[in-house]
Design a protein around this nucleic acid. Sequence first.
DNA 1: CACGCCACCTGTGAGC
DNA 2: TGCTCACAGGTGGCGT
Length: 227
Amino acid sequence: VSRRAKYILVALDSGQTLLLHLGMSGRIILSHENTPLQKHDHISLDFDNGIHARFNDPRRFGYCGLVPTEKLGGYKLLRALGIEPLSPGFTSAKLAALLKGKNTSIKAALLDQRLVVGIGNIYACEALFRARLSPKRRAGSLKPEEIKKLAPAIRAVLNAAIEAGGSSLRDYRQADGELGYFQHHFAVYDREGQRCPGCDCNVKKTGGIKRITQQGRSTFYCPVKQK
DNA sequence: CACGCCACCTGTGAGC
DNA sequence: TGCTCACAGGTGGCGT
């Protein structure tokens, strides 16, 4: 079992690869022999030892498919994916090259899986806070010294989130079923009106953390610290 | 090509 | 209590 971006890849003896994406609410749940299907179980993989692996996904935003393994690289859903932010190749210079000439906001650029993979709405907000960059900045307008802060900020927030077992707002669970704990470490996400870490503002006056909508998605940021 | 927007779903919590 | 509404971690596809 391996991973590319937010896809889970399971190499099968048949020469095919099972391609899974959990979307917003998907889970793989292992259960014992003859366990009845639960609500929102869409696929059951039944093993010779009696174990069932159920693909459970209430919102059905997830994906499950079989692809011939030798065709994986050219497969539509994987072909255009960008660089892994925790790979050695993800340097500030690389990020700068990806953002160069981009007219869209830096927030939208971070969510664009064709540039950098794996960054979702929470971690885009949190990385921009750590880099002290406004989510509204044009991606192409970032100066080299700003990108030198952003690339490490992305790596740091992802590593910290992995360390904490991910962010359980509602559905998310670690592979072993445990809750994640990174939601307790959010600096800005889902904290509208509150203080950001290290804040010495008069929050009654400044309003604290702001929430705006970009590309139809919530963005949380500190207008004082993020420029 | 680049970008913004919408649809795809169900569940939940807030407000009334 | 129960109704309606807004909103939620993602992303493919379409219109501009």
